[in-house]
Amino acid sequence: MVSAVLPVTSIEVGHHTTANWLGMTVNTDTIYATLVAAAVTLVLAFILRAKVTSTGVPSGVQLFWEGITVQMRGQVQSSMGLSLAPFVLPLVVSLFVFILVANWISVLPLQFTSAEGTTMELLKPPASDINFVLALALLVFICYHTAGFRRSGIIGYPIKVAKGHVAFLAPINLVEEIAKPISLSLRLFGNIFAGVIMVGLIALLPTYIMWAPNAIWKTFDLFVGLIQAFIFALLTILYFSQATETQDAHH
């Protein structure tokens, strides 16, 4: 059993390099990868800011941002309308691009050998860290409930959430409400984390054949990263529209 286990134990799941900042344990590898993703996003944003044009020929960066903004604006408009919560659109665009970049930076085959002699990825996808997905999901959770309170009132909103469409389903509605941030975060986490495990498993294959499944998996991982970023943004819009709808909006 022990000999059979040996190669398997070289897969280290959920292992992070940690440090102690401000009295808290932090996963430095996650923060590093997140900073890289944020930097890429911010550079794209500043390039747009510098070259944005409405009359000239738009640059590729502008087309990228425009495409995403138009797509997300369409989603927001069709599900809740832009006027109910004006910060939803920038929030959703930020979420989508940030998660997309964060997922895609892990495709870069950058590895280093740690002091212990194990080979580690230089840029782990931040979404494979529970902190990343929880931070985003809880932010969304708080934001859409804030929007809901603003829309239906301090007392009206909790009643509306609990009551849902049928009053006797109130317990289920509450469970659903709690499940929302958990499912939102764990869906992203699970998909990206599975990608990391897959790469780890593929790395156990002999070198002469490893490249083939690795190339296939990394390509598929690009697709997974895109889809998960899109789903995260889409569900954010959906939760916002559920929180801000009113009873008479159904009729």
């Binding site: 940690t18 900042w21 401000l22 009295g23 808290m24 344990t25 932090v26 996963n27 996650t30 923060i31 997140t34 900073l35 944020a38 996003t41 911010l42 920038p90 929030l91 930020s94 940030f98 931040p126 860290d129 529970i130 902190n131 990343f132 929880l134 931070a135 985003l136 932010l139």
Partner: peptide
């Protein structure tokens, strides 16, 4: 989750 949460949140808020 550990302290990473707050740093990620701060980074995302800046990006946002």
């Amino acid at each position: 989750p550990n302290g990473t949460f707050f740093f990620i949140l701060a980074i995302f808020l800046i990006v946002f």
